[in-house]
């Protein structure tokens, strides 16, 4: 089977509203992961720093201490970023994207409905939803012991920006996406991919992070007449 499980999204669930895509577990818990890595990084760097500071004062212990301080700073920033992401996710339910039909075909136009609900209360200030439809090539290869990824953009379309209305419990965004018949169908192998995605950014005062959700779309190699 060519199609691996779609990155960034769970498989769509068909319901009365249409096909509902949600973000993957990986995206959902990215904040927690970054926070934990940041904590471990900071702890490890702090221990190294204490060791160097504890050394008898001398020229040769000063520079390593300054250098290691930078690592501590990086760890703190990482933990901070993870914490902000976690905080945003605690305030909001996972995002959903609803389509009337799925998978999509080349030459097709289709409506999309994004929604993201607050866990408690309503939006007290207006916010903004921005969205894009993108397609890119993605490859992964090994260079020495490192895994390297590269992307090349094939298609990028900005969708209209919408305002999040105050007093509502969820941010709703509706638009239409068009996939030209001249574009390429999805291809999702392990190391080489052609990925279609809808990227939605929700900005709301009171939620520190710009909440970005990516939804992978499957586009079949079929051109609509």
């Amino acid at each position: 089977m060519v199609q691996q499980s779609l990155p960034n999204s769970s498989l769509p669930q068909r319901g009365p509203e249409g096909f509902v895509l949600t973000v993957s577990q990986t995206q959902r818990y990215a904040g927690l992961l970054i926070f934990v890595i940041g904590l471990i990084w900071t702890a490890f760097s702090a221990v190294m720093l204490i060791v160097f500071i504890g050394e008898p004062f001398g020229f040769f212990s000063l520079f390593p201490a300054v250098f290691i301080s930078l690592f501590v700073l990086v760890g703190v920033l990482m933990a901070g970023a993870g914490l902000l992401e976690l905080w945003s996710n605690l305030k909001l339910h996972p995002a959903e994207l609803i389509l009337p039909k799925y998978p999509l075909r080349l030459g097709e136009t289709c409506s999309i409905h994004y929604r993201r609900r607050l866990r408690r209360g309503t939006f007290s200030k207006p916010g903004r939803v921005e969205a894009q439809l993108v397609c890119d090539e993605w490859v992964e290869y090994t260079q020495g012991t490192d895994k390297v990824t590269k992307t090349h953009s094939l298609h990028e379309a900005e969708l209209p920006t919408r305002t999040v209305v105050t007093g509502e419990q969820q941010a709703d965004y509706e638009s239409r996406i068009a996939i030209s018949s001249k574009e390429l169908p999805s291809f999702l192998a392990k190391h080489n991919q052609i990925r279609w995605r809808v990227i939605v950014k929700l900005t709301v005062p009171g939620i520190p992070q710009k909440c970005q959700s990516e939804f992978s779309l499957q586009v079949l190699p079929e051109v609509l007449a």
Binding site: V2, Q3, E137, W138, V139, K150, T151, H152, L154, L184, P185, F187, N192, I194, L220, P221, E222
Partner: peptide
């Protein structure tokens, strides 16, 4: 050949 593809492709980063 499968309905879901892939199709023959000559791209920037890879070919099928």
């Amino acid at each position: 050949s499968p309905d879901e593809g892939p199709i023959t492709y000559n791209g920037f980063l890879f070919r099928i």
